[in-house]
Design a protein around this nucleic acid. Structure first.
Lengths: 171, 171
DNA sequence: TTTTTATGAATGCAATTGCATGTAAATATA
DNA sequence: TATATTTACATGCAATTGCATTCATAAAAA
């Protein structure tokens, strides 16, 4: 995530070229559009993500995943969250979250507290440094989203995209 | 990102909750929708990709990146392509493409040929085994796209998504 | 109450990725 | 023609990720 998630720019192109144009039916052209759009979805989202993360990097800020965790912990401050709760919200693999938390703790942005209700884990809480970092990253990140993403779509298109994405995330 | 491209599910949620509802202006609600949609775009595309790649994995097939390369080389068979041309089409980092090609050559799906016109590089060509593997992967991959992606949208929605993605990929 | 199963979290190991660098060849410049 | 710069590709090293496993604790079942 790549990333593994390198684009499939050629899929639509190759598929179009592999289809015998003389035998092109309505069904195959519909299939072509779908594959084409799928490849574009992957390529575009990756392209935008790379651009936005590059802005953070230029500003010498940590990756977006740090921002995510800090934002989540800030939201529930001072209560804190269990790692499995963060994992659910952020859709990050358990073993990666464990390591990510390690780094945030080492950097002083997060602290682990013993969980009295469940001896297996702990509560994660944001520190003062963490609040500062999140506040520092926020405008840069929001600006990057504006520059690379929002600026390209009309409000009606943004709403359409949102509606479509809701349909795509459902089962 | 894949990946690094773990979802930002909480961004929209957290932003919404951090906004003082009483002071919510039209501008801030528009900003909220944009950030919300951005986070959904990343999360949904990653979610779909993971599901589709899982289908390939279940079928004991190589990752999508192998398919990409094979498809591109099949398209231009028997002419072949230079690695930098593949890199442009697939939007993969040069150092990763180099290693990916290594693996495909070792596995017998691709072969490197000396490029007479340019001694710095070589031409990449698909082998018979490579053609077989591409043909084997194709229906599984297309089925997975159908199952996880196409089935969820009406044709008009697919067209809308395609139009929006075209706008997003432009500068 | 005891035993079995599930859950939460950390970690070893291997594979992959990100980055910078090096080398050879091609191209541009003087 | 000679020199400088750019390009194509491979690779060393460090960091990250994927996977399976392990251990401690909680919950469920007997």
């Amino acid at each position: 995530m790549y990333v593994k998630l390198d684009a499939f720019a050629c899929i639509c192109q190759n598929h179009r070229m592999n289809i015998d144009n003389k035998m092109k039916t309505k069904r195959s052209s519909l299939t072509d559009i779908r594959i084409n759009t799928w490849a574009k979805l992957l390529r575009v989202s990756q392209y935008l993500f790379a651009n936005i993360e590059a802005d953070l990097k230029s500003a010498r800020l940590p990756p977006l995943s740090w921002y995510d965790v800090l934002l989540e912990l800030k939201r529930v401050d001072p209560k804190g969250l269990r790692p499995f709760q963060l994992q659910e919200n952020l859709l990050i693999a358990q073993y990666n979250l464990s390591r990510l938390i390690d780094k945030l703790v080492t950097a002083g942005y997060v602290r682990r507290e013993i969980c009295k209700q469940d001896g297996r884990g702990h509560s994660l809480k944001i520190t003062e440094s963490g609040l500062d970092l999140q506040k520092q990253m926020s405008p840069i990140y929001l600006q990057a989203i504006g520059d690379h993403f929002s600026v390209k779509l009309e409000d009606s298109e943004m709403q359409s995209l949102d509606d479509i994405l809701i349909k795509l995330q459902n089962h």
